[in-house]
């Protein structure tokens, strides 16, 4: 992370914190970080950090033992996180306010987490009521509430990079693209665009429940934390979530020979069903002190207090 980004974050954090102190001493913040992995190291069992490949590169740096998957890389990984909720053992509850608006600055509660863009992987929840929290829930994808209000700005603006299906209107909840050794994707040359031979694109979307049979790929995931995190005006607790692409592909049973272009709700349904196995709780910190200096890689060398492993 660049120095000015760190500076900006500290500034934002301190402004929000100071505001809280003035308005409400019975609340605090919670950071939620997302990190991305490409399988486990077979010797140590440690999750391997995901490094983005150049688009079109055939350097396959990710490996699955599953024959249908084999060697591949990831050039694009992004997903929407929405409807974040924190809960505690004594009835504590925090629901991140959701708002769709044409004005970018008024959109709240919708996050587009994108590998390679570190600011997108750190979500700050503010005005969290003071208390103990031991559970986090969030949704992957943009549910109906994000569609039915019509045109939207900010992370929901398709002209600003929001992944959007124009023919079957809705946001792509999860995008994974790259090259795979086993992909049977032939080269396709269109008017001003090319689909590379051996590439793959998994676009998981679809929010409509038409006659209750059509794939609704908006999935809500809940994770128990590895202990209790105290939220108050003084501390900066943090939850670190992980996402393992190898786990997703293995659980989904992907065979790149036949599955390399997923662009419809039905084809994406199996992926969506297995999101709960691809996302995992990595760890939590009672005090989030130095996280932002890294580009969300492994935090195991971290020496903060209250490390719950």
């Amino acid at each position: 992370m660049k120095l000015y980004q760190l500076f900006l974050l500290v500034l934002v954090a301190s402004v929000i914190l100071s505001c809280d102190e003035e308005e409400n001493t019975d609340s605090g913040t919670m950071m939620v970080y997302f990190s991305h992995f490409g399988g486990l190291d077979h010797q140590s069992g440690e999750a391997l950090e995901l490094d983005l490949a150049e688009s079109g590169s055939t350097d396959y740096d990710i490996h699955s033992m599953e024959e249908g998957i084999g060697m591949f890389n990831v050039a694009t990984l992004q997903y929407y996180v929405t409807n974040i909720k924190l809960e505690g053992p004594n009835g504590e509850i925090f629901i991140d306010p959701m708002k769709v608006s044409a004005k970018a600055e008024e959109v709240t509660g919708y996050y587009l987490v994108k590998e390679g863009k570190s600011s997108s992987k750190a979500i700050m929840l503010s005005n969290v009521p003071a208390g103990e929290y031991d559970k986090i829930t969030f949704t992957i994808g943009v549910p109906e509430e994000g569609i039915k209000e019509g045109a939207a700005g900010g992370v929901l603006d398709p002209a600003e990079g929001a992944p959007f299906w124009n023919w079957n209107n809705g946001y792509i909840g999860l995008t994974v693209e790259g090259m795979a050794m086993n992909s049977e994707q032939p080269q396709v040359i269109g008017d001003g665009w090319t689909i590379e031979e051996g590439s793959y694109a998994f676009h998981i979307g679809g929010w409509k429940d038409i006659e209750e049979t059509t794939a609704n790929n908006i999935k809500t995931l809940t994770f128990d934390l590895d202990g209790q995190l105290s939220v108050n005006a003084e501390q900066n607790p943090a939850i670190h979530m992980g996402f393992d692409i190898v786990q997703l592909l293995e659980e989904t049973g992907v065979d790149f020979a036949s599955t390399y272009a997923v662009h419809s709700p039905l084809l994406g349904a199996n992926f969506a069903e297995n999101l709960n196995k691809a996302f995992f709780l990595k760890h939590t910190h009672q005090t989030d002190s130095h996280e932002m200096k890294e580009d969300d890689h492994d935090h195991d060398d971290h020496s903060g207090e209250g490390h719950n492993h």
């Binding site: 019509g150 124009n166 023919w167």
Partner: peptide, 21 residues
Amino acid sequence: GGVTHLDHVPINAIEAEFEMD
């Protein structure tokens, strides 16, 4: 019936290769 909000209708016409491309 693929588009469920009038606001989203022009995006389809603008981006369809055989319309405005």
